[in-house]
């Protein structure tokens, strides 16, 4: 079993990494013929960096748009990041100090994660406008993430697993040694969902995580008077 799961995880990770590199390369290789930031826009590179930082860390535009979507969306992304960082304790040896500090809180972050996803799902179903634009993959994506978070929480609160064995398995992945997995259906679901998530990342709307950095509305400067903007088509 552990070989199968490990293979899936390697595959997922491979697709994820190659996919991300592909999209970065793809977007970078497409010219942006005209300067069209959404104004008012920063005039310097530094200003642009700050704008994108605010977008990616605080979800500034979403905040302006819809407070509920922002609350659920932001909590989801923040708690996901937090939980993922806590998982480092399975993968690094010896565990870094700060990981030890934050990991006890992952049990709460997991709950936030689950309920923010539930909030997003509820919103998708309840608000007619959002329901109108939703397609099956939008729901599935949320359900998949809820499965991932839910199985994790269940292992945390109910169906305990042997963390020592799990850690051995995880550490083994780094050196291609397939150590046994603790016997747990929850864990299988959990790891399967991780693999699926990694696999679909580059072929789905999840590439928004890359697109956000390449959006001309956000990453261009208001400086066309000071400096002539040259279209790459012409060169």
């Amino acid at each position: 079993m552990s070989v199968v799961i490990a293979t899936l995880l390697y595959l997922g990770l491979g697709v994820f990494v190659i996919g991300c590199v592909y999209w970065v390369w793809r977007y970078a290789s497409i010219p942006a013929p005209l300067n069209m930031p959404t104004m008012p826009a920063p005039t310097t590179r530094c200003g642009v960096a700050l704008r994108i930082l605010r977008e990616t860390v605080l979800f500034e535009s979403l905040f302006k748009a819809s407070k509920w979507t922002w609350i659920f969306g932001w909590l989801f992304h923040a708690s996901l990041l937090f939980v993922v960082l806590c998982h480092l304790r399975f993968f690094v040896d010896p565990v870094w100090g700060w990981v030890n500090v934050i990991s006890p809180y992952s049990r709460y972050a997991g709950i936030v994660l689950f309920f923010s996803l539930a909030g997003l799902l509820l919103r998708r179903i309840v608000i007619a406008r959002v329901r109108y634009i939703s397609v099956p993959s939008d729901y599935l994506m949320l359900l998949m993430l809820m499965c991932l978070a839910g199985s994790g929480l269940l292992m945390r609160y109910k169906y305990y697993i042997d963390l020592y064995t799990l850690r051995n398995f995880a550490l083994g992945l780094g050196s291609f040694s397939f150590n046994v997995l603790p016997p747990s259906a929850m864990l299988l679901v959990h790891l399967l969902m991780v693999a699926v998530l990694l696999l679909v990342f580059p072929i789905s709307k999840l590439t928004h995580a890359i697109g956000v950095f390449f959006s001309p509305s956000r990453n261009q400067r208001d400086n066309t008077r000071a400096k002539r903007y040259v279209n790459r088509w012409d060169s």
């Binding site: 497409i30 819809s66 959002v130 709307k205």
Partner: peptide, 24 residues
């Protein structure tokens, strides 16, 4: 066009159907 205009390509790929723009 999606190979000539980065904006268009990124916009076509990146929407997550979040609905934040639906009432704008």
């Amino acid at each position: 066009l999606s190979g000539k205009y980065r904006g268009l390509r990124v916009y076509l790929d990146s929407c997550v159907n979040c609905g934040a723009c639906t009432d704008k």
